[in-house]
């Protein structure tokens, strides 16, 4: 068997049409960025699913820790006044 050496892993993001954000669709292996973009086209856009592709080598993605999600997102938890529904608007007031 030949030497076990994988091509690096890349995360793929696709803009499905102008005006929308790039969205994560999956990952793939490629030797470099150029090949990653070409492979992403073949793997993830065979039916015109995209007009633009981003690839990022997976090792460069830093993520929040799901085990600490409770504490991490806690600051937003008790601030209901950030939502418009917190406020009472008299029935007479229209268009607010």
């Amino acid at each position: 068997m030949s030497q076990q050496k994988e091509w690096p892993l890349w995360e793929v993001f696709i803009r499905s049409k102008q005006g929308l954000d790039h969205k994560h669709v999956g990952s793939l292996h490629a030797a470099d960025a150029e090949m990653a973009i070409q492979n992403a086209r073949d793997v993830y856009t065979r039916r015109m699913e995209g007009v633009s592709i981003w690839v990022v080598e997976s090792k460069h993605v830093h993520a929040s820790n799901p085990d600490e999600a409770g504490a991490f997102f806690d600051p937003a938890n008790d601030k209901v006044y950030r939502h418009p529904t917190f406020y009472e608007v008299p029935a007479e007031i229209k268009n607010m």
């Binding site: 030949s2 030497q3 050496k5 091509w7 030797a31 470099d32 090949m35």
Partner: peptide, 9 residues
């Protein structure tokens, strides 16, 4: 091919 592509990159 895989080795050459990696070496090239």
């Amino acid at each position: 091919v895989r080795e050459a592509a990696l070496a090239h990159a």
